[in-house]
Design a protein around this nucleic acid. Sequence first.
DNA 1: GCGTCGCTTCTGTGATCACATCTCGTGATA
DNA 2: TATCACGAGATGTGATCACAGAAGCGACGC
Lengths: 242, 242
Amino acid sequence: MNSLRPKANIVPTQKRGHVQDEIADRLRKGLMVGAFIPGQVMSLRKLAASFGTSPMPVRDALGQLVAANALEEMPNRSVRVPRLTTDRVKDLFEVRELVESLAARNAARNATPALIRELQAINRDLKISIARRDVLAALAANQKFHFTLYQAADSSVVMPLIESLWLQSGPTMYCSFLAPDMPWDASAHTEVLEGLKKKNPTAVQRAVARDIRTAGRHLVQAGTFQLPGGMMMLPTEISLDL
Amino acid sequence: MNSLRPKANIVPTQKRGHVQDEIADRLRKGLMVGAFIPGQVMSLRKLAASFGTSPMPVRDALGQLVAANALEEMPNRSVRVPRLTTDRVKDLFEVRELVESLAARNAARNATPALIRELQAINRDLKISIARRDVLAALAANQKFHFTLYQAADSSVVMPLIESLWLQSGPTMYCSFLAPDMPWDASAHTEVLEGLKKKNPTAVQRAVARDIRTAGRHLVQAGTFQLPGGMMMLPTEISLDL
DNA sequence: GCGTCGCTTCTGTGATCACATCTCGTGATA
DNA sequence: TATCACGAGATGTGATCACAGAAGCGACGC
């Protein structure tokens, strides 16, 4: 009877109540994978149009990401992908080293043979991607390696923290690792696996700490994050085919 | 011309665009101060009615707090104050010890005489509140002591993490420290101040770690958080006079 | 030619509505 | 009396609308 009936989602209402979460997931993935340029503003309505929804779930998703420090809020109340300063990168990796070391140590205590096998498989993929110079796949494999390891720590307190820290460093890491001469040392991962096999949590902890420390050092040295935004061949417009 | 004109906020539109933030702040404060019982569900419309606004800004505020792990989302999509298990408390304080130790260490490097004086003043208030058995004031002073110290670390990465961790432990801490026999050792704070005066970051770090460790131990021992919800004289309904 | 005013557009925010889902209470029936 | 079913209410979610502010941009005046 009422003319206000909405146009009924183009998609046949896939899952009720999970729209904002799916949007948030796609945005998260996009941030990790470098689909968004540091400094890029995330327009509410444009994102909504891209997703084919109303601005409402997008607003919620952006709010989540802002609360997780994955996006930053400008005085205009617009949100954008944060551009990191050198100091902030140092801070970020200092904390990452600390927190992820803890997670790695605790994960090592709970390590099962199945976990070790899974990590070995992921590391194989990682090495292949590195050999192919496939930055995207390498970053994805690297993330998967770390997160499956940390997951074994079985801490619902630490995991969200680590996710937040990765989301913050994600876009910048992607940009920096686009430099073809960026060395990538996968030896730390090998040390992790050896430590797990020997059931030596301290060794695993040290290996993860070393991995993060060297990554952070390379990132600071490269310093690509302090270049003026908009460089590189990345699309200025939002690409949502994630 | 349109009849849809809303009823115009009772409050003469204090500040545009800061409604959701004020709501989030009041909820945060309420969580820290124990205005909400662990397990209590935060109803969107009821909160909105209490605040005298539409459910919209409340939805945003709750989303922020859920993203910060200060509130948890039930399968119903309702959000509630999380009730902590023993394991989670241990996790929480393990991470708190780690992260806040780092912040304390870095803060000690930047410590100024003014900061030391400020911390001394706060600690005086804390001791007075303890002597008076004023749990609320003591918790507030304790929080102020820690946060002003960490603020000196000048890290926009670490501070949000610490805030999130405090928000998670806030309600439970309040409930536990209601027990009149809960011992409160302020000696760690004295050690912190001495370390700051001697410009010894390691000493400050150790003191903060000890402070958190003992607090966590007492919390686990007391174990009040695992009592069935709804105990104590706390109001079941939401009290918003914060 | 350059600066400035004003308009158009776009931004996020808050309110209201419609709806699917779930809960809870009341009723009837066995 | 016990149990099941139906219904009324409440829940969060998403869409749409109204509005205030900022920003871009073009035209006009100096």
